[in-house]
Amino acid sequence: MRVLAALSGGVDSAVAAARAVDAGHEVVGVHMALSRNRAQMRTGSRGCCSIEDAGDARRAADVLGIPYYVWDLSERFEDTVIADFLSEYEAGRTPNPCVRCNEHIKFDALLDKALALGFDAVCTGHYARAGLDDDGLPLLRRSVDPAKDQSYVLAVMGPRRLARAMFPLGDVPSKEQVRAEAAARGLSVSAKPDSYDICFVADGDTQGFLRDRLGSRPGEIVTADGTVLGEHDGAYGFTVGQRKGLNLGRPAPDGRPRYVLSIEPVQNRVVVGSAADLTVGAVDGEDAVWFVPAPEDWIDCSLQVRAHGGAVPVRARTTAGGGLRIEVDDDRLRGVAPGQSAVLYRGDRVLGQATVSAAHPAAARTA
């Protein structure tokens, strides 16, 4: 097959490309330029896709003996991923930019361009497993290494795009083995630190980034009954479940910490309450994507709502208009915010994904 290998400049994508070469594919490497300011440098490894990463990707391609190109997708990235990030926070929701990058950039813009150029698949360094089930349907599964599993942020791609994706690292038992393999292949990125946090927020100050883009918007911090406890400089700077940084002038009556329960963008208010108030009994989702036939009746499965969070047992079914209803029978699910990605699993297999549109407190759970 003709395979386009996405080279981020990190060790994972380099080893994934090397494995694609070993498998006998005709591999071409491409680095995605996602920043409009390509002269921007970074220190450490907080983000990714910097000009330094482009250089590391080129050196990896040279070692592997494959052609290498840089594709400028910065305008698409700004207009989709960053614009979505800002508008979601402005609307009181909590987006996951990695999910949106996979949806709009890596397995949309990049994949579509690759197919138009005659490539058969896109290869990335994600930790997940792709294949076909017994019925011939595209199958997305967790990686062998649960600590590195990235199936959560990949679920949004859907079965059509999954059929054109390769994840050679899905069966690797540990990141240490990937680094050892890179060193054995003579790849200089073998000891390069992992990237983390949000790639376009290079200094890690998400609230500062939002404040610079959205400006100061003072409002009130209130309890569920409307009692004013304090003020904020922008409701967009808070997320459901947040405890630190509330700067409230008085403690709760019971002396326990307060947490953000919801953000009300129209009123520009942040609602706070107790930890118990964060317990979720049901979740509604929108824009559902399925890797199995969409279940009209209730199915038993498990739910994950954070990239590095655990899964909890739930039951789920589709609703009108491509929606999803999820119900939780115990009190293990807490702090779910609109905008988060809700991914359903059975065992290690991804069943489907939706964007959370509402989370309902356990106190309102129906029998």
Rank of each mutant, 00 (worst) to 15 (best):
A23I: 00
R160C: 10
I105A: 02
S357D: 08
W290I: 00
K148M: 15
L115F: 04
S357A: 13
A182G: 01
L248S: 02
A337R: 09
V153E: 10
R142M: 10
R243L: 06
V144W: 02
Q242P: 01
A39F: 12
A18Q: 10
A294K: 09
P295D: 03
G55F: 11
Y68D: 04
D329Q: 10
V153W: 03
S45G: 13
D329E: 12
A184L: 10
G215A: 02
T223W: 06
E90P: 01
G9R: 06
F209Y: 14
E231Y: 11
G310Q: 13
L261M: 04
G219R: 03
D348M: 11
A342D: 05
P361T: 13
D348G: 13
T124D: 02
C98L: 05
L210I: 04
M166T: 05
C101S: 02
V260F: 04
D149Y: 07
G322V: 08
L115H: 04
G245M: 03
L73W: 11
L64V: 02
D145K: 05
A276D: 15
R365I: 05
V336F: 00
V99Y: 04
D72Q: 08
V350D: 03
A114T: 06
L162G: 03
E296S: 15
L154R: 04
R141H: 02
G55D: 13
H360L: 13
E181Y: 00
S74N: 06
S195E: 00
E78A: 15
A320L: 14
R164A: 12
Y345R: 08
D53R: 09
P95N: 11
V189P: 08
T319V: 14
V266G: 07
G322D: 08
A224I: 12
P159F: 03
D53I: 03
D56A: 08
A337F: 09
S143R: 02
T239L: 09
A57Q: 06
R38C: 06
E75R: 15
R129I: 09
R185N: 03
Y196L: 15
C48T: 11
L111K: 01
M32Q: 14
L4Y: 01
V27L: 02
E26Q: 11
V343P: 01
A362N: 11
A182Q: 00
K113A: 14
V172A: 12
T206A: 12
I326F: 02
S50L: 01
A165E: 03
H104M: 15
E286C: 09
S151I: 03
V156N: 08
I221F: 02
S190I: 05
G131L: 02
T43D: 13
K148Q: 15
K113F: 13
I66N: 00
S216W: 08
D212V: 12
C48S: 14
G136N: 07
D254N: 13
R250W: 08
D53W: 11
M1D: 14
N96C: 14
L229M: 03
A275K: 15
L303M: 10
V305G: 01
P159L: 00
L303F: 10
F107W: 15
R315E: 09
A320C: 11
G245C: 04
T43C: 11
S274V: 00
R42V: 14
C199F: 14
L344K: 01
A252C: 06
L333D: 05
C123K: 00
C48K: 10
A276R: 15
V99P: 04
V63G: 05
P251Q: 07
D12N: 10
P138S: 03
